[in-house]
Amino acid sequence: MGIVVVNPGPLTLVEDLGRQGWAALGLSPSGALDRQSLRLANALVGNPATAAGLEILLGGLRLRFVTASYVAVAGAEGSVTLNGAEIPLNQAVPVAPGAVLDFAVPLFGLRYYLAVQGGIDAPRLLGSRSTDMLSGEGPAPLASGDHLGIGSDLGGGPELGAGSDLVTGPLAVPAIRRAPDPARAITVRVDRGPRADWFDHDSWRQLVTQGWTLSADSNRIGARLVGRPLKQTRTEDLPSEGMVLGALQVPPSGLPTVFLADHPVTGGYPVIAVVRRADLDVLGQARPGQRIRFVG
């Protein structure tokens, strides 16, 4: 086995870009909440975009490498050390056998993404190695003493040359996007949802003008928001209908939830808006208590 988990931290998951098209079986797309950061980390070590990496919530992870490799860390910004020495983020770094990699609590953002050259080797389910926290399918969250295999998912991106230098491959490295500052509001673009007509114009204006706060009850299933509740103009029961990634669903409390990667595939509350796919990555890095503004 290539890697031993010494300490898993609060929650560390195996994630790739997810499994699409299986809602009929009750499975959400799952996958990394910040897909751009996972793509970046994979590209930096020469993996294809679809390779599995680790999604690390709030640091705390400690890994011991049995096998030499290259690693890259993207996403959240904080101190990541190799044998006690801080390593750069957003860059490929060689790791020797016996080396220990530690993740501190990030200063910015919420989730680190670790790519290992060759990818994390875990069983595939319907074409993906991703953990789905709602259904419980996919690899279990990491636990102390776990052994992780290193795969052979190479090619399709920049390749490692001699030493730690990178040479340009057939695909460009994705742009580095800074993790959001928890002291600043993030802006998220939305489009009108299929049930926007269940709310009056004032509710839509309220959605896109007032500030919202990310609740501590948020998780990979949904980002729960706190603010002045929205009011429906229609009160009849809504039959359960399909839900998409980014759907902004409004329950009777009037406080919206944005469905994230592990969302349920159906729901019975009206969807007033849908977050644009490109902005879900930023939302996946927002911290509890962070201010959020919608624009549409």
Rank of each mutant, 00 (worst) to 15 (best):
residue 279 D to L: 14
residue 242 G to Q: 12
residue 285 Q to F: 06
residue 133 M to R: 01
residue 161 G to A: 14
residue 154 L to E: 04
residue 200 D to I: 10
residue 163 G to H: 09
residue 236 E to D: 14
residue 40 L to S: 02
residue 97 P to V: 07
residue 270 P to T: 11
residue 66 V to F: 06
residue 286 A to H: 06
residue 107 L to S: 15
residue 33 L to G: 06
residue 200 D to A: 15
residue 121 D to W: 06
residue 187 T to Y: 03
residue 223 A to M: 14
residue 275 V to M: 11
residue 115 A to K: 00
residue 100 V to G: 05
residue 229 P to Q: 10
residue 216 A to T: 15
residue 65 F to I: 12
residue 138 G to N: 05
residue 135 S to W: 00
residue 137 E to F: 00
residue 31 G to C: 09
residue 294 F to R: 05
residue 264 P to F: 00
residue 163 G to I: 07
residue 20 Q to H: 06
residue 15 E to Y: 05
residue 222 G to I: 01
residue 103 F to C: 13
residue 150 I to D: 09
residue 248 L to P: 10
residue 136 G to R: 05
residue 253 S to M: 09
residue 179 A to D: 00
residue 97 P to F: 03
residue 139 P to A: 01
residue 224 R to T: 11
residue 158 P to S: 08
residue 37 S to I: 06
residue 2 G to T: 13
residue 117 Q to W: 00
residue 294 F to D: 03
residue 185 A to Y: 04
residue 255 L to F: 12
residue 200 D to K: 11
residue 39 R to L: 02
residue 261 A to W: 00
residue 158 P to L: 04
residue 194 P to Q: 09
residue 237 D to L: 06
residue 215 S to Y: 15
residue 295 V to C: 09
residue 229 P to D: 13
residue 293 R to N: 01
residue 112 Y to M: 04
residue 264 P to K: 01
residue 269 Y to G: 06
residue 88 P to M: 08
residue 88 P to Q: 09
residue 268 G to S: 03
residue 44 L to M: 04
residue 36 Q to E: 08
residue 191 D to F: 10
residue 188 V to Q: 07
residue 260 L to Y: 03
residue 8 P to V: 12
residue 294 F to H: 06
residue 174 P to A: 09
residue 1 M to G: 15
residue 52 A to W: 05
residue 44 L to V: 02
residue 280 L to K: 13
residue 53 G to I: 04
residue 208 V to Y: 04
residue 169 G to T: 15
residue 251 P to N: 03
residue 228 R to C: 07
residue 211 G to T: 15
residue 64 R to A: 15
residue 38 L to F: 01
residue 221 I to R: 03
residue 194 P to A: 10
residue 144 S to L: 07
residue 228 R to A: 13
residue 138 G to M: 03
